[in-house]
């Protein structure tokens, strides 16, 4: 267990030092992430300013939901975002190189071109969560305070697992990187708004099929102490860690299946 983590830290740090050689580009790439958060957040706020309330959620609640979604997504992007380039590595043959090295190929893939620029998104997202929680009338119990970090970590793990599963599609269809985008980036776009906005079918699909509801929707319901608008049981709010664990097992299984099926592109 310790070994892959050490390898991960070492490789990630190597990439950080490499990127520091182009400081202006790194600063601009980080700024671009911050601009992205600002743009997305502005869009969400414009929507709520125009509509007043959507599905019983006002602008402040929406800020919380957006912040939770963006935080989990950007942390997952920071830690594992590079896996989406699997198809490229397969095509160029560099994936074969990873397989012969004595480090887990998943670690190598995840740390490839690791970039601290993604903190440009995570930090403002954390700020949004803090501002939203400060502005909302949250009933702060010990349980809520303790569960908040657990829910954020679970949401991040859910995003990570979705990312790995999405990337594994490229083991089977080489050019299909964009299909994964529809669940990774698409998942982020979906979870940015309170899920009730999309109606019952989408909420059910995001709870039981692709469990993105545990990234921002269920945690927000818990923090705000709201009843579930679609009558789903309240214990689902505490299911995030279990869902994250199950999804990780699924991701590991898909990754192993893909790896076993992998035949190099040749010379």
């Amino acid at each position: 267990m310790a070994d892959p983590l050490r390898a991960y830290a070492l490789l990630a740090w190597t990439w950080c030092r490499a990127l520091a050689q182009y400081p202006l580009s790194l600063a601009l790439l980080t700024a671009a992430q911050a601009v992205a958060v600002a743009a997305e957040l502005a869009a969400v706020m414009f929507v709520f300013t125009r509509a007043g309330e959507l599905a019983g959620f006002g602008a402040r609640e929406a800020l919380l939901v957006y912040g939770l979604a963006a935080l989990a997504f950007s942390l997952a992007d920071l830690l594992l975002g590079s896996v989406e380039r699997l198809g490229e590595h397969i095509r160029l043959g560099s994936f074969d190189t990873m397989l012969v090295r004595p480090v887990s190929p998943l670690v190598q893939l995840a740390t490839d071109q690791f970039s601290p620029r993604r903190l440009g998104k995570a930090v403002p997202a954390l700020g949004a969560v803090v501002v939203a929680l400060a502005g909302l009338d949250v009933d702060w119990t010990v349980q809520r305070a303790l569960l908040l970090p657990v829910l954020v970590v679970s949401g991040t793990v859910v995003c990570c697992a979705v990312w790995v599963i999405g990337a594994c599609v490229q083991f089977f269809v080489l050019d299909a990187r964009e299909v994964a985008n529809s669940v990774t980036y698409g998942g982020q776009a979906l979870t940015e708004y309170p899920l009730a906005v999309y109606g019952r079918k989408v909420v059910y699909a995001a709870t039981f099929a692709v469990p993105l509801a545990f990234v921002s929707w269920q945690p927000a319901l818990y923090l705000l102490d709201r009843p579930d608008p679609f009558g789903l049981p309240a214990w689902l709010r505490f299911a995030s860690p279990a869902v994250a664990a199950v999804l990780c097992l699924a991701a590991a299984a898909v990754w192993r299946t893909g790896l076993r099926r992998y035949r190099s592109t040749g010379s």
Partner: peptide, 19 residues
């Protein structure tokens, strides 16, 4: 894959705007 992804993003935005 691009057509599929564009359509999924379109559906998400469309549902928000319909609300």
């Amino acid at each position: 894959a691009g057509v599929f992804t564009n359509s999924v993003f379109g559906a998400i935005s469309a549902l928000v705007l319909l609300a």
